[in-house]
């Protein structure tokens, strides 16, 4: 257990050092996120919503969509980053060098994904703060501690998602694209950009059980000052507690398959 924590820490330090080497990429990435928020803020000024009651308590479309953008943009970016990283590690040979280390596949999975997703959630919080301070995100009654609690609780759930994307990339050459599609679908079904009530009936039923829905609903509730986010928090924790072990098993199976096929 201690060795596993040490190894995950080593991966986190490696990723941090690598980020410092690519600091301009991070600045550009942040600029991209803020430009997205500005775009939706401007769109919101010209789009009138017939019934704001449908926007989960938000009074403008931007207040609704900013949460989806701030959360899903970074999750998509983290998932794409992890998939790209795994693919790159496979192509340059570092994945095999990592598998040759005394590191269990589960530790390897956490090492590859924990930092990018933890960092993504910090970026989410930063985007929400920018939207609240400089754009039109309503936050007069926001419970910022609640925002942080929901983001932290989302950590295990979204990391599980990242591990599944990494597993797909290990086994399938097109895993990157499949992963991006999966994350986009979770944003789409979770109500990132529009209320899930607008989805066709069949999809709306699926939307009730996707983890992004709980994260987005919880974030919107905390930002509007509602205390109605404990249920979402509980569901997020439950999803993480169940999803993370399953994701680790999926990754272990993917590595075993790659070792059997000689495709590391």
């Amino acid at each position: 257990m201690r060795g596993a924590a040490r190894a995950v820490g080593a991966f986190a330090l490696r990723d941090l050092a690598e980020r410092q080497a690519f600091r301009y990429a991070l600045v550009l990435d942040l600029a991209f996120g803020i430009l997205n928020l500005v775009t939706f803020s401007l769109i919101s000024r010209v789009v009138s919503v017939p019934d704001t009651a449908e926007l989960d308590g938000a009074s403008t479309y931007f207040s609704f969509a900013a949460v989806g953008i701030a959360f899903m943009l970074v999750i998509q970016s983290a998932a794409a980053g992890v998939a790209q990283r795994v693919r790159q590690e496979q192509q340059v040979g570092t994945l095999e060098a990592l598998v040759a280390q005394p590191v269990a596949p589960g530790t390897l999975a956490l090492g590859l994904t924990a930092f990018p997703f933890a960092f993504a959630l910090v970026r989410s919080a930063a985007y929400l703060a920018v939207a609240a301070l400089f754009l039109d995100l309503e936050s007069a009654n926001a419970d910022w501690l609640g925002v942080i609690v929901i983001l932290v609780a989302s950590g295990a759930a979204v990391t599980a998602l990242g591990i599944v994307v990494a597993a797909m990339t290990v086994v399938v050459p097109q895993g990157q694209m499949v992963g991006r599609l999966l994350v986009f679908a979770l944003g789409f079904l979770g109500g990132a950009y529009f209320p899930v009530s607008q989805l066709p009936a069949g999809l709306e039923a699926i939307a009730q059980v996707v983890p992004t829905r709980f994260a987005l609903d919880g974030l919107r509730a905390t930002l509007s000052g509602s205390s109605d986010w404990w249920g979402d928090l509980g569901l997020l924790v439950a999803f993480g507690a169940i999803g993370l072990p399953i994701a680790l098993l999926v990754f272990r199976a993917a590595v075993r398959l790659a070792v059997r096929r000689g495709r590391l």
Partner: peptide, 12 residues
């Protein structure tokens, strides 16, 4: 050390 490639991370 396996194959023609190293296990080193290029950016580090």
């Amino acid at each position: 050390s396996l194959g023609a490639r190293t296990g080193l991370v290029g950016a580090l």
